[in-house]
């Protein structure tokens, strides 16, 4: 038997070494910006401000990180690092779980029930794909003001949880459930809730995990929306707080703490991608279909 990991694209000898070298170069380019900031986060301000930066971690790591968590960030932005991380986590989780809940519910209604205007509802949801927030910035802001949602968690989360992609994905998946399964469940006297809880939910779990990973990252990396609907620093996400820190940059900016904040803004979603890689890849490939 031939080695199954070999494909006709596989090469041998020096060509293989060259391919490895290209990949290593690729990884270095991809990783370098983050590595650079990580290194900077372990040096003192004086070292950072005197380029070139050493390529190895410095001795200030513990000092910088404990200072950042222990009040250093409060001095720059007026809000603690804990608060920023807490806000961002809450928003990312709220968006991911909210999207899953409401799009599962609507897909369930569209696939397993018959009612007037069923397809009209589907299209109504589907067309929102073509209305990203960027094309309706000002009027959406006005709605937020009228509803009193500025500077609230609801305002940061609610408008982002309506998602055509998640609804489409669940609809597609629900349609693959064989008719016989539903028939059998109904013969056994199962109602909509029983069928969902005992049959559909266990079958949906990998899809839910895949959507969760993608939407958690989507929530964590939001920029334009939090920028619009928050005025108070208390409500900042870590990404927005970072932007504010660097735009008021002056000679006294504690760059070492800015670097620590950057690392902490990057780390959580990257960990989610790396640790949940299987679901991440599935989610990415399927949400784009």
């Amino acid at each position: 038997m031939a080695d199954t990991s070999q494909t006709p694209l596989t090469v041998r000898g020096p060509a293989r070494t060259i391919a490895h070298l290209w990949m290593i170069l690729g990884i270095i380019i991809v990783a370098f910006p983050v590595y650079y900031v990580f290194i900077a986060s372990t040096h003192s301000v004086q070292t950072i401000l005197r380029p070139p930066l050493p390529l190895l971690p410095g001795s200030e790591a513990i000092a910088n990180y404990s200072d950042a968590f222990g009040g250093g960030i409060d001095r720059i932005g007026g809000v603690s690092l804990w608060r920023l991380l807490g806000n961002t986590t809450l928003i990312a989780l709220g968006i991911a779980l909210g999207k899953i809940a409401i799009s599962m519910a609507s897909a369930y209604a569209i696939v397993f029930f018959r009612f007037p205007f069923r397809m009209a509802c589907f299209w109504l949801i589907f067309i929102t794909l073509m209305l990203p927030v960027e094309v309706r910035i000002q009027p959406t802001y006005k709605v937020m003001v009228d509803l009193g949602l500025i500077d609230t968690y609801a305002g940061l989360i609610l408008p982002l949880i309506a998602s055509a992609t998640a609804t489409l994905l669940f609809r597609q998946f629900f349609m693959t459930i064989p008719d016989e399964l539903l028939e059998a469940a109904r013969v056994d006297g199962a109602g909509p809730w029983r069928f969902f809880k005992d049959i559909l939910w266990p079958l949906s779990r990998t899809n839910v995990a895949a959507i969760f990973v993608i939407q958690f990252i989507y929530g964590w990396t939001q920029y334009l929306w939090p920028l619009l609907v928050t005025n108070s620093n208390e409500m900042n996400t870590i990404v927005i707080a970072l932007k504010k820190m660097i735009s008021f940059a002056d000679a006294d900016t504690p760059w070492n703490l800015v670097m620590v904040t950057s690392i902490l803004a990057i780390l959580p979603p990257v960990l989610v991608v790396v640790l949940m890689q299987r679901w991440f890849v599935k989610g990415l490939v399927e949400t784009e279909k």
Partner: peptide
């Protein structure tokens, strides 16, 4: 694995880096 993780970096932060 080493190639895909920048997907999780917010665009604004990519710019700052």
């Amino acid at each position: 694995t080493m190639m895909i993780w920048p997907y999780a970096v917010a665009p604004a932060i990519a710019g700052m880096l």
